[in-house]
Design a protein around this nucleic acid. Structure first.
Lengths: 148, 148
DNA sequence: TATGAAATGTTCGAACT
DNA sequence: AGTTCGAACATTTCATA
């Protein structure tokens, strides 16, 4: 149920909000060639239809002392349900995101830790908790994210 | 150069903004027990010190027709520099993020595509462009992200 | 260095056209 | 989709500790 198709103006508004999520309606209105009220109605509509799921602040985690980022691939025992996988991984506070995966492995976990010792400890915790039968960790040296 | 250490109030403000990046200063002020002006000054300071790198809108990409998410591990020829890796991967519009990795592989690429054919096409494009000597793709079936 | 209060200008939000 | 207008908000200034 797509509700409404988005037109080019909606996409323009999304781009503006992706670059600065606190941009005001008054600021965006002239950029898209509409009145303030029309901009607000479009953003409200995208919120209601679920296209916009929220707004958030972007943080430099390294400056908060979480300098190391890693991905760990997890293999689970054959009897483990997706629900269990998500539950056990999300219980670990260092885990930022969990992706369940098609194919020979079962989950890819994105985590942030303070240092190498901490990384070791979290991996051990993941291996110990539940039905994990194998892991492979990729330590992130650098990253680039599309500036939407 | 950390500039300033963050106190518990700053962390509280970050949590509030992570949950809703458009929350107003007037709304946050009573929650952290400060005046509106003090809250604004703290947020401004975290922006200036680089702890806060920006604000953005969160979008449901599936509703925009980019229903498939995948991670592709890339191996590059030994002579390839990190700069080249980031450049070639970021040139592909479907790529959302590139992580350079320690160890036997060289990069992990996060991508969003419309469908399986599109995924195949993007992988071929990555393999063709530059010095990629091997890939392994993990298709995402489901995901969970910490609701900071 | 950090704060609160007050003054000013801006933006929002809900009418209605 | 635009316009209007009272309320809410942001931002600057000033005084204080």
């Amino acid at each position: 149920m797509p509700g409404h198709e988005l037109d080019e103006t909606d996409h323009h508004l999304l781009r503006l909000l992706q670059a600065d999520g606190r941009r005001t309606f008054s600021e965006m209105a002239p950029e898209v060639g509409l009145s303030v009220a029309a901009v607000k109605r479009r953003v409200d509509r995208m919120r209601e239809s679920g296209v916009i799921t929220g707004f958030t602040v972007q943080v430099d985690h390294a400056k908060l002392g979480w300098g190391i980022e890693a991905f760990t691939e997890l293999r689970y025992a054959g009897t483990t349900s997706v629900k269990e996988i998500l539950a056990s991984a999300s219980r670990t506070p260092e885990v930022q995101a969990v992706f369940t995966i098609a194919g020979d492995l079962d989950a890819l976990v994105h985590m942030r830790v303070r240092d190498i010792n901490h990384l070791q400890e979290v991996i051990d915790r993941l291996r110990g908790s539940g039905k994990v039968i194998g892991t492979r960790t990729l330590m992130v040296l650098g990253s680039w994210t599309r500036d939407d």
